[in-house]
Every structure is written in structure tokens, then in C-alpha cells.
Simulated assay, not measured.
Amino acid sequence: MADPRLIRKTTILAKLETQYGLDAAPTGAANALLVSNLSVNPMNAEYISREIIRDYLGGSEELAGARYMECGFDIELVGSGQNAVAPAWGPLMRSIGFAEVITPAVRVDYVPISGAFESSTIYYYDDGVLHKLLGVRGTATLDLGVGKKPVISFKFMGVDGGTTAVPNVGTTLTVWRVPQVVLDANSGKLTFGATHAAAAAPAFVGGTPYPSDGLTIDLGIKAQFQKLLGGERISISERDVTGAAKLQLSAAEEVAFLNDIKANRLTSIGLIHGTVANDKVGVFMPAVQMKEPTKEELNGERLIGYKLGIKPKVGNDEIRIFTSFA
């Protein structure tokens, strides 16, 4: 009797493709991911009933039609440990419709784009079974909630590249850094109304900081499987970034925020997390619509919750994720 297969014996590799859907052949030495919270759907398929007419009762078998694969996992949100050097999770951001912009001696930015999308190949080893996903694209959410480790949760779709029974490969994970928990000492307050110097040091200029329970963001990228003959692919067609936060406000501040909501005023929001040079990560959103205020409670104290509509200001700038700075 064979030993049972173990979930912990899972290995994920990802590498950017040079041509859409062409197997990039990621390796355990160069392209291994450090992940948690794994999921995989090895065959998401349409099933077409034959609907055969017969002189007895009973359903007809179904034919497996157009199919694709899905996988998901969490990545710890932390820099590369080297100034202006892209982190190991950079290829994943580039596979969900973001461009990687490196400013030498300053930092690495990930900014949204609206065309010329890149893709990756993912190898998902599940204790002896290899699932290959080609032409991979998808979406992600960010969780910078207080008391948690900072993570990006990716959800990917890929063209079916085949499934085989092979041993897991060895991996090298030394490039992955250890994150800091989202706490007051490591993250500080959310800053509203600031500006951000795009080509200079990653600091916010001006603005007002407020105590909060952190920040969650849904990048809202719409990726779909296109079942075209000779053109099967995962296509990115839309992006609608949203978020949420809870703030500790004075009575006057709550009223001021409510008046801004009624007047449809936009504000910027920024957060820098981390105290270790080149492991830090920042998020900046220049045009945020706060809406749907709710009365929240934290150990008997009043918080005010807001949903966030994160909008582009001039285009492809609604959110900037930056990292690997001093």
C-alpha cells in the first residue's frame, strides 16, 4: 500500500513567459514560490450533454468541453532586502496586469497597465502530481490588517498545460524575506490627503495621519478564459480597485468625513509598512472615494468603517505598490 500523499508536500514554481502560452519551464532553483493558503482546481470545464433519445429512462453522458485550470495562494508582502531590486513576487504582479518600474538606488514600483499584459507559467506540484498552467493571468487582494502578517492573495487562471505523475522538484527559497507583522510600531497610521513623489524617496508629502485597523484592498482585475479555436487564452478585460478601512476619529473628524462623502470629494490614502531597510512595502492611492460609513466597535471604543472606491486620477495610477527602499 502506498503512503498517503501529504498536502504540505506542495511546490509552486512561476516564471514569466516570453511568448503567451509558451511553457517558460520554471525551475525549483530559480522560480520557487514561498506560499501559504493553497488551492488548485485542476480542471474547470464545460460539460456538454449528448441528450440522446433512447427508449429507456436515464441521463446521457456528458462530454468534457472547453477547460482551464485555476490555482490560488498567499504571498508574504515584503521587499527583496536589496535596494531597488525586484522582490521574488514581482513576476506574479506582472501576471495580473501590473508593470514593474525600477528606479535605480530608490525603489521598485508596481503600477497598473491597460494593455500589453504579461503572462506566466505556473508549475503546481501536489506531492507527486504536476499540474501545468500556461498563459497564466489573474487577480489579487492585499491584506494589511492590524495584527496580521501582510499578504497578497493571488487567484490565477491558466490554459491547461497537462497533468503528469512526477516527483516534486527541490527548491531554493533563500531569496524570500521574513515580513513584519502589521502593528503600530511597524506600520504607523494611514495618511489621508498626502502626495507622493514618484521619482524620489518613497515618502508622503503633507496629509493627515489617522489611527486605523489597517487596510484591505481588492485589485478587482477581471480575468476570463477565452475559448477560441486557435486563440485559447486568459484575457484581462477590466479592473475596478476597491478597499476598506476602519478609522478612530474625533466627533469633528467623523462629521468632516461624512460631509466629504456627501460632496463626492476624493482623497489620497497611503500606508508604509515595515521598519527594515529594503524590506519595506508601501501603498499609495491618489484618488479614493470614501463611501458607506458604518459605526464599528473595538473593545468598547468607537471606530468608523468606510468602503473605498479606488479610482484612477489620470489613468493607470489608481494604486501604486512600492517596495525595496531604505
Results as ranks from 00 to 15, higher is better:
residue 134 L to S: 00
residue 131 H to M: 02
residue 189 K to I: 07
residue 255 V to L: 09
residue 54 R to K: 15
residue 200 A to T: 12
residue 82 Q to E: 14
residue 142 L to M: 10
residue 213 D to G: 15
residue 176 W to L: 02
residue 321 I to R: 03
residue 3 D to N: 11
residue 219 L to S: 08
residue 116 A to N: 14
residue 93 M to P: 01
residue 258 L to N: 15
residue 254 E to F: 06
residue 150 P to M: 04
residue 24 A to E: 02
residue 32 A to W: 00
residue 303 L to R: 06
residue 188 G to N: 04
residue 155 K to Y: 14
residue 191 T to E: 03
residue 179 P to A: 07
residue 144 L to P: 03
residue 220 G to P: 05
residue 120 S to T: 09
residue 187 S to K: 09
residue 221 I to H: 01
residue 231 G to R: 07
residue 244 A to V: 10
residue 189 K to H: 10
residue 182 V to R: 02
residue 75 I to N: 01
residue 181 V to H: 11
residue 272 I to T: 07
residue 275 T to L: 05
residue 156 F to M: 03
residue 114 S to G: 13
residue 15 K to E: 03
residue 70 E to A: 12
residue 220 G to S: 04
residue 16 L to V: 07
residue 319 I to G: 01
residue 298 L to A: 14
residue 107 R to I: 11
residue 204 F to R: 09
residue 119 S to T: 07
residue 156 F to V: 03
residue 3 D to H: 13
residue 163 T to A: 13
residue 160 D to P: 05
residue 72 G to F: 06
residue 320 R to K: 15
residue 260 D to M: 15
residue 134 L to A: 00
residue 266 L to S: 13
residue 95 S to D: 06
residue 233 R to Q: 13
residue 118 E to P: 05
residue 321 I to Q: 00
residue 302 R to K: 11
residue 155 K to G: 13
residue 265 R to E: 15
residue 14 A to C: 14
residue 18 T to V: 14
residue 25 A to W: 01
residue 278 N to F: 06
residue 247 L to V: 03
residue 318 E to P: 06
residue 120 S to V: 09
residue 49 S to V: 07
residue 54 R to G: 08
residue 124 Y to L: 04
residue 219 L to A: 12
residue 141 T to Q: 05
residue 179 P to N: 09
residue 2 A to W: 09
residue 44 N to C: 09
residue 74 D to W: 07
residue 232 E to S: 05
residue 59 G to E: 14
residue 154 F to C: 03
residue 118 E to D: 13
residue 307 K to R: 10
residue 83 N to C: 11
residue 294 T to R: 11
residue 169 V to H: 02
residue 58 G to V: 02
residue 290 M to K: 08
residue 113 I to Q: 00
residue 82 Q to C: 12
residue 47 Y to I: 12
residue 303 L to W: 07
residue 4 P to I: 15
residue 176 W to F: 03
residue 285 M to L: 05
residue 229 L to R: 11
residue 300 G to L: 11
residue 299 N to F: 14
residue 126 D to I: 10
residue 66 A to V: 10
residue 288 V to C: 05
residue 316 N to H: 00
